[in-house]
Design a binder for these strands. Sequence first.
DNA 1: TAGAAAATCCAAAGCGCTTTGGAAAACCCT
DNA 2: AGGGTTTTCCAAAGCGCTTTGGATTTTCTA
Lengths: 347, 347
Amino acid sequence: MSDSVVNLKQLSKSLGLSQTTVSRALNGFPEVSEKTRAKVQAAAEKLNYRPSPSATSLATGKSRIIGHVVPVSEHRMINPHFSDFVAGASDAYAEAGYDLLIRAALPEQEADIYRDFASRNRVDGVVVHGPMVHEPRIKLLQSIGLPFVVHGRAGDEEHSYSWMDVDNRSAFEQLTHYLIELGHRRIALINGLESMNFARRRRLGYETALSDHKLPVDPDLVTSEDMNEPYGYRSTRRLLEASSAPTALIYSSILSALGGLRAVNEMGLRPGKDISLATYDDRLSFLQAGDGAGQSSYFTSVHSSIQDAGRRVGEMLISQIKDKNSAPKFELWKSQMDIGKTTGPPR
Amino acid sequence: MSDSVVNLKQLSKSLGLSQTTVSRALNGFPEVSEKTRAKVQAAAEKLNYRPSPSATSLATGKSRIIGHVVPVSEHRMINPHFSDFVAGASDAYAEAGYDLLIRAALPEQEADIYRDFASRNRVDGVVVHGPMVHEPRIKLLQSIGLPFVVHGRAGDEEHSYSWMDVDNRSAFEQLTHYLIELGHRRIALINGLESMNFARRRRLGYETALSDHKLPVDPDLVTSEDMNEPYGYRSTRRLLEASSAPTALIYSSILSALGGLRAVNEMGLRPGKDISLATYDDRLSFLQAGDGAGQSSYFTSVHSSIQDAGRRVGEMLISQIKDKNSAPKFELWKSQMDIGKTTGPPR
DNA sequence: TAGAAAATCCAAAGCGCTTTGGAAAACCCT
DNA sequence: AGGGTTTTCCAAAGCGCTTTGGATTTTCTA
C-alpha cells in the first residue's frame, strides 16, 4: 500500500543481509537457505520492493520487453486486425512478465529500427507482422541475432525461422469448393494485397479449387487491395454491375465483406438468395457477439481467431527468448468452416 | 551499416576525449565547442554509436517510454478505436523519440500497474483511456505524481488535470436536433456504456435536444452497451420490431451503426427513406475510403478523427513530461457534422 | 572429533550512461 | 604583461541491479 520506494540496498540493510544474498533470494538462486529466502520475500513484500527495470536491464542485458514495429503506410491506415492480435500477445507477455513496446515506422525505417532494438537491447525479441512474399526482414533479423517469430510465413525458407500461420491456402480452397458444389461457376475473390504472402496463398487455394473442377480462372474476377470496408463495397459494386457478373463472392476479410454486404443490400439483392457471400473471418472481437453462445454466424466463413494467434505467437517468442538456441518452431493452424446465411445455390 | 556496437567509452577513446565531453557534445550542452561537437557527432555517426536506453534511463531517471494500460474485459473485447488512437499517438511519440509501451490488465489491476510504472520509472507518463463518470485513476495518478493526459474527461474536477476531449454533448445535441427538424418524433439512441463519461455526455446532448423541442424522453428508446457491431444489429432489430418503433436511430459508434444497417437492410427498410440512421464517426481508418477524395460519406454523422486525437494527446503528454510543473492543459474539439444518405424525413 | 564437503553468505566489480566539482587552457581587457 | 573571465575539458562518483570469486559457517563422514 505504501508508495515509498525502496531499493535493493535499503532492503538488504533493513534485513541485515548483503545485496547479493537478497538478490539471490528474490531471484530463486539455490545458494540461499529457504529460511532466509522466506524472510527476504516477506520483507520485500512489506516494504513494497520492486526492482528497477533499467538497472536490471543494464546488469543483465535483458529488457523483458517485446517489440512490435507497426508499419504505417502513407494513408496512415492502421490494420484493425492488429489490435486483436496485440490483445492476445500482450496477454501472453503479461503472464510471463514481459511488456509490449510499439514503434510506428514507415516501411523504409523498419530495418533501422530493428538494428536499434538489437544493438542496445531495448527489446529482447520482436514479432514480424505481415510477411511479404519476399521478406527481407527475416534475413536481417537473423543476421542481427535478434529473436523473432513471424506471424504468417514468407514465401521461402520456411524452416530457418519460427512462425505461426493459419492454413490460408486450404481455407480458401475449401470455401471455393463449397461454393462450386452449390452450383456457382463464376466466383469472385476480393483479396488482400498480393504482395503479402497470406493473400498469395489464399489466391492459390481459390485457383486450385477452380482448376480441380475444370473451371476457368478469370483474372477479372479477382481484386487485390488493402482490406477495408470501402474496398469491399467498391469492388463488389463494380463486379456486380459488370456484364458477366459473378454469382458468388469470397472476401479476404470480414471488413471488406461488410462493405460487400452494404453494396449488395443497396442493389436490392438478398444475400444467400440472389447472391452468395463468403469470407475469411479473423474473429475480430468488435464484430463478435458478446455472449458468444452457440448462435451460428451470419456470414458463411472460414475462421480462426487472430487474438488466439497473437497469444500463441507471444508464447512462442518468449519461449524462444528463454531458450536462445532452440530450433525454430512452426505451427500451422487449420481454420474452421462455418455455413451461415449468406450463401446458397445460384439463381 | 556496420552492426558493431560501440559504447561511450570506446567512442571517446577513439576520439581522444573524455566520456564527459563526448556525452555533452552529443546531448547539446553548451560547455563544449562547436568544433569538437561536430567532430564528435561525425565519429558517432561513423561508428554507429547508439546510447543504451537502460543505461541512460538508469542515469537520468527517465525512460523515454509512454505507458498505455489497456483494460481487458472478461470478454477479451478489445476496443477497435484503440488501434487508431494508438496509431496517432505512437506517431507523436516517434517524432519526439519516445516509445509506446502497452500492458494488458484487468480493471482491478490497473492501479497496481500505475504504481509499478511510477515507482521504478518504467515509463515517463501514461495516457488514461476511457474515463468513467467517476474516475479513481485520476486521483491515484496525481498522488503518485506520474504525468498523464486523459483522453476524454471525467465527470468532475475538470481543471486539475490535462485532458483532450471532443464535445460529445453538443455533437449529439446537433445530430438529434437535425433529425427533429426533419420531422422525426421518436428517435432512438444506441449509446455506449453509460458508466463511461463520454456516453453520459452524449445522452445529455440527446436529451437536451429533445427537451428543447418539447419532445418526451422515452427511456425505452435508449440502450447502453459496449459499442460493437452485433450490439447495433441486435438493438436495432429489437427497437424496430417493437410496437411503437422509432423512425430514426442515432448510434454512438460507426461499428454499431454498421450493425444497425445490417438489421435495417435485412428487414427490407431503405435507409434514408423508410428509416433514418445517424452516427458518431471516429473516422476509423479501416472504414475510411482509401482515396479520401471529397466523396461525401454514406452515413449522416458527426465526426472527429480519433487518430488525430491520439496524436494530439501524445503531444500534450510529451510536452507535459518535458515541462513537469506546467499548468494542466485542456482541449475541447468540436466535431463536424456531415449529411449523408442515411437520413431523410420520416415516412 | 577431526577433516572434508556442503551450505550460506559477502565485498566488490561491473553494466553504460550522466553529472558534479574542478582544473587547465584560451581569451580579453587595460 | 598581468589579472580576471570565459571556454573547454576531465576524473570520478553515482544510478540500482547482477554476478564473480571468496570467505565463513554448518553439516556430514569415518
